[in-house]
C-alpha cells in the first residue's frame, strides 16, 4: 500500500512536467519568430544583402548582364579560373593524402612528444594567409633558406616562392591543420577490430586500406576536403604576398576592382567564383556522399 502511494505521488508531477516541456518545445508562432529574428537578421545583413548588391552591380557595367559570361569568353579570366581550379584541386588531393596518413598514424600510435607534434601541425590555423606567404618567401624566396643551401651545395640558388610551387606550398601549409583534425576525428571512431576482422579473412594491407579504412575515413575526408578546396579557391592573402606571375581568381578580382575600377567585371567574377566552388563541392558530395553517409551511420 505504502509503496503504491509513493509510486503514484512520484509519477504525477513528472507527468505534468513532461507536458510542460513538450509545450514549450513546440513554441507559439510569435515566440518562433522572435527566436528566429536574430538569425535572419545576421544572414540578411552579412550574406544575402551584400550578395544581391554584388550580383546587381554587374548590370551597371558596359555589357550589362552579359558580363557574367566574361569568365568563359575572356581568355585571361578563363585561364585564371582553370589555374585556380587545378591549384585548389591539387592542394586538396595532396592535403588529403598527406593528412590521411599522418592523422591515422597519430590516432593509432602513442609516443613521447605526440601532443607537441599535433600542436605544431595545427599551428597554421592561427596564421593569416599573409603570414603564410611571408613564411614561404623566407623558405624559398630570393633570400630564402632553400636558395641559401642549394647555393652552397651546387652553386645555384633554387627559388620557387614566386611561382606556382610556392603558392602550392603556402596553400598546403594552410590546409593541413583542418584536414588533420577532421581525419583524426574520423579515425578515432574507426574500430581497430574492423581491420583485424578483414585481416583474419585474408585481406592484404592494401585491401584493408581500400575496403575498411578509406570508407571509415570518408566522411571526414569529404568534409575537410570541401573546406580545403573552398579555402584554396578563395585564398587571397598568401597569393597577394607571393604574387608575381600567378593569376589566381581572387587576385584577378582584386586587380579589376582596385586598379582598373572595373566593378562590374569584378562583381561577375566574384559571383562566378562562388557558384563554381559551390558546384564543385556539390558534385563531390553527390558522387561520394551517399556512400559516406552509410559509413557514418553504420559505425557500430
Amino acid at each position: 500500500m505504502a509503496l503504491q502511494n509513493l509510486g503514484e505521488g512520484r509519477s504525477r508531477p513528472s507527468f505534468s512536467r513532461y507536458f510542460g516541456v513538450s509545450r514549450s518545445a513546440m513554441a507559439s508562432p510569435a515566440t518562433f519568430m522572435a527566436l528566429m529574428a536574430p538569425g535572419v537578421a545576421i544572414v540578411a545583413a552579412f550574406f544575402l544583402i551584400p550578395l544581391v548588391l554584388v550580383a546587381m552591380e554587374v548590370a551597371n557595367g558596359p555589357d550589362g548582364w552579359a558580363t557574367y559570361l566574361v569568365i568563359l569568353t575572356n581568355a585571361r579570366y578563363f585561364e585564371s579560373l582553370v589555374q585556380t581550379l587545378l591549384m585548389s584541386a591539387g592542394v586538396t588531393v595532396v592535403a588529403l593524402i598527406l593528412c590521411g596518413i599522418v592523422g591515422m598514424f597519430l590516432v593509432r600510435n602513442r609516443f613521447a612528444g605526440r601532443s607537441v607534434l599535433i600542436g605544431l601541425l595545427t599551428l597554421p590555423l592561427s596564421f593569416p594567409g599573409t603570414v603564410v606567404g611571408f613564411m614561404v618567401i623566407m623558405l624559398a624566396g630570393r633570400q630564402g633558406a632553400v636558395g641559401g643551401i642549394s647555393n652552397a651545395l651546387i652553386g645555384e640558388k633554387i627559388v620557387f616562392a614566386y611561382d606556382i610551387a610556392g603558392l602550392f606550398i603556402g596553400y598546403l601549409y594552410f590546409s593541413i591543420p583542418r584536414v588533420i583534425l577532421a581525419v583524426m576525428a574520423s579515425a578515432e571512431k574507426l574500430d581497430p577490430q574492423l581491420e583485424e576482422a578483414a585481416r583474419s579473412l585474408g585481406a592484404p594491407r592494401w585491401r584493408v586500406v581500400r575496403d575498411v579504412i578509406l570508407p571509415g575515413l570518408m566522411p571526414g575526408l569529404i568534409s575537410s576536403g570541401a573546406i580545403c578546396f573552398a579555402t584554396a579557391m578563395g585564398a587571397f592573402g598568401t597569393a597577394f604576398t607571393l604574387a608575381t606571375d600567378i593569376d589566381v581568381l581572387p587576385m584577378v578580382i582584386y586587380t579589376e576592382f582596385t586598379r582598373n575600377a572595373n566593378i562590374a567585371v569584378a562583381a561577375a567574377l566574384s559571383i562566378a567564383l562562388g557558384v563554381i566552388t559551390w558546384l564543385c563541392l556539390s558534385a563531390v558530395r553527390f558522387l561520394v556522399g551517399e556512400k559516406a553517409d552509410v559509413t557514418t551511420r553504420g559505425g557500430a
Partner: peptide, 19 residues
C-alpha cells in the same frame, strides 16, 4: 601473419563492415 593463418574471428564489437 594472421592473413595466412586461416583463423575465423568473432569480436565483442561485431566488427562488421558498415559499408
Amino acid at each position: 601473419s594472421i592473413e595466412k593463418r586461416r583463423v575465423g574471428m568473432v569480436f565483442q564489437s561485431y566488427a562488421l563492415f558498415p559499408n
